[in-house]
């Protein structure tokens, strides 16, 4: 009976270790700091997944072809790591960077946001991706994809000042989203 209990305890131990303690994935990471208060460099291997597919079993082809949020199923502990951000400082997510690797096991380097006092776990900024024997690829594809999808939005300034959908919403509801009258009064306070 004691031997049986010990065998089960050994089998169970790694699983509970991953639940109870956050692992250190910072070894060999070359992630660049973004000076975020809770950033931790993290380099790890994992499979690129469609999160909704993983949770519900509803799995369109090619991880939803960009229509779904993507994540990494980390090989070391089978945990889902949400890819919130890519490596560009332009308010951009990581879906377009991860999509080419849908279903593949790749190595990723970036920053984990980890704060035990705030409800954050497994939230990640992807800085670079490496597939099998390929070179590292920087996660910076958003602006290229946006430009290709918005050929009529050429001009000066960053993409977020030229995006037609964003500009239409701001034109209708203002920068605060509270209507143009509130917006005008606020801009007077802000700039005059």
């Amino acid at each position: 009976m004691i031997r049986l209990a010990a065998a089960f305890a050994l089998l169970a131990a790694p699983q509970f270790a991953t639940v109870a303690f956050a692992q250190d994935f910072s070894t060999n990471s070359e992630a660049r700091s973004w000076n975020l208060y809770a950033e931790v460099p993290a380099l790890f291997e994992g499979k690129i997944i469609d999160v909704m597919c993983e949770l519900t079993g509803d799995c369109p082809a090619n991880c939803g072809d960009g229509e779904r949020q993507l994540a990494i199923l980390r090989s070391a502990d089978d945990q889902i790591v949400m890819a919130l951000k890519n490596n560009q400082a332009v308010f951009s997510g990581a879906v377009v960077d991860l999509l080419p690797y849908c279903g593949q096991t790749v190595t990723l380097d970036g920053l984990m946001i980890a704060d035990k006092d705030f409800p954050i776990r497994n939230s990640y900024q992807v800085q670079r991706i490496k597939a099998a024997d390929a070179e590292w690829a920087t996660a910076n594809q958003f602006t290229k994809v946006w430009a290709a999808e918005n050929p009529d939005a050429k001009g000066k300034g960053p993409w977020f000042r030229r995006d037609p959908r964003i500009n239409a919403l701001i034109a209708a509801d203002g920068y605060l989203g509270l209507g143009l009258e509130v917006d005008e009064a606020f801009k007077k306070y802000l700039f005059e």
Binding site: F91, G93, I166
Partner: peptide, 10 residues
């Protein structure tokens, strides 16, 4: 929030 949502941040 508009910028981030349009650019794919969850």
């Amino acid at each position: 929030a508009l910028w981030c949502s349009a650019a794919g941040i969850p």
